[in-house]
Amino acid sequence: MGILWLSLLARDLLQVAFSGTVLVPDLALLALVWLSVFRCEEPGSLFIHAFWVGLLWDLRWTGVPGMTSASYVLVTAVTAWVWSSLPPGRRTNPVLFFFWSSAAHALTSVFPAVFTSKGLGLSSSLATQQGMAIACVLGLTALYIRYRRSHHE
């Protein structure tokens, strides 16, 4: 679970460093997807960590406590449910992992605009964030392939 809190800290530090220029990718969400995939049968404690990580982010950056935690809990639940429903052979599919992570990131990025019903628009910073997120997801998918191979799954 340490990976989740570390990714939150990394995102926070990057957001401070790039404040006023770009939105950094949601590294905590990608870590959550990763953990949900590998703990899809037992996601109970993940929900609690997802909630606290999201709440901390909300208190630090969004100003709407509960908004990010709700999206994190939902992503954790849906990812765990989808992965546990897949036949064991399909779970190792890296293409599925890539598209799932990208879609989860894209959806949670627009979630605040939907949630507050005050859309911030498809700004260039949002597009840059998604571009950087795709690069991160590619790296994560490479890790995923490596991990699955090393564990002979």
Binding site: E42, F47, L55, P65, G66, M67, V73, A77
Partner: peptide, 16 residues
């Protein structure tokens, strides 16, 4: 698992 999921989600939405 269901209880924890619904609990954390409800609490998030309530806070929001």
């Amino acid at each position: 698992i269901w209880i924890v999921f619904l609990g954390t989600l409800s609490l998030s939405l309530l806070l929001a």
